[in-house]
Computed example of a mutant assay.
Amino acid sequence: MGAKSAQLKRPKVIRVVGLQVLVTLFVSGGCLLTGDMVLAYSSFFGGMVCSVPNLYFAWQVFMHQGAQAAKQIVKSFYRAEAVKFGLTAVLFALVFILVRPLNPISFFLTYAVVQVVHWLAPLVVKR
């Protein structure tokens, strides 16, 4: 058994975040086709408020690997989840403070659709 076969493969969570961004672009692009720019950028921001914290979480949690790094993995998991929560709150606040005009229905619907992509991740990332 070589050293290469003993290594664990890293999870393919980047596929999930990539799919979230793709869905965001698809939905906001569809809204742009309606000719309503406010609808389009509101959708874009809704999807990105969901995707960006997930990208940060994936980057932080899967930085460490292996049984010897188990304590580091657990620490990074809890820290990344806390920062992800805070980052989501900050991004929500920034959008609602800085983006005028904003279509909140489009914003929240796209956020929800992109979140559902995250929930369906086991179908995207095979075990």
Results as ranks from 00 to 15, higher is better:
8 L>Y: 13
1 M>P: 10
75 K>V: 10
90 V>L: 15
101 P>N: 05
93 A>H: 07
8 L>E: 15
114 V>Y: 03
105 I>Q: 01
88 T>Y: 11
43 S>L: 09
41 Y>G: 03
121 A>N: 03
56 Y>S: 04
108 F>K: 04
26 F>G: 02
117 V>F: 10
26 F>T: 12
52 V>G: 01
96 F>T: 07
34 T>Y: 06
105 I>K: 04
120 L>V: 04
120 L>A: 10
88 T>W: 09
114 V>P: 03
83 V>H: 06
16 V>P: 00
90 V>C: 13
111 Y>D: 02
2 G>P: 05
42 S>C: 12
28 S>Y: 02
91 L>Y: 13
32 L>A: 13
25 L>R: 04
58 A>L: 04
50 C>A: 11
41 Y>P: 04
63 M>V: 14
22 L>W: 02
82 A>S: 10
39 L>P: 07
73 I>D: 00
63 M>K: 15
51 S>V: 09
94 L>A: 14
35 G>D: 02
42 S>W: 12
98 L>G: 08
23 V>N: 01
80 A>C: 12
93 A>L: 13
19 L>H: 01
36 D>K: 06
78 Y>P: 00
86 G>S: 12
47 G>N: 02
53 P>I: 07
119 W>M: 05
63 M>T: 15
79 R>C: 11
3 A>T: 15
74 V>W: 13
26 F>Q: 00
87 L>T: 10
111 Y>Q: 07
40 A>W: 01
86 G>I: 14
20 Q>G: 05
56 Y>L: 13
67 A>K: 15
69 A>R: 14
89 A>I: 03
3 A>N: 12
49 V>G: 03
37 M>E: 08
13 V>P: 01
26 F>V: 09
51 S>A: 15
74 V>N: 09
102 L>W: 03
45 F>K: 02
96 F>L: 08
37 M>W: 10
59 W>F: 11
25 L>K: 07
6 A>W: 05
117 V>P: 00
112 A>M: 05
19 L>M: 09
121 A>R: 05
78 Y>K: 05
124 V>H: 09
47 G>V: 08
44 F>T: 05
120 L>S: 02
1 M>S: 12
126 K>Q: 13
11 P>L: 12
8 L>Q: 14
14 I>V: 07
85 F>A: 07
15 R>Q: 08
33 L>C: 01
35 G>S: 07
64 H>S: 15
79 R>F: 12
27 V>H: 00
74 V>Q: 13
107 F>C: 10
33 L>W: 03
126 K>L: 08
91 L>M: 15
112 A>S: 07
19 L>R: 01
69 A>G: 03
118 H>S: 13
57 F>I: 14
39 L>Q: 11
76 S>D: 08
45 F>T: 12
27 V>A: 02
100 R>T: 12
60 Q>S: 15
57 F>R: 06
51 S>M: 11
70 A>L: 13
2 G>T: 14
23 V>F: 04
35 G>A: 04
117 V>A: 03
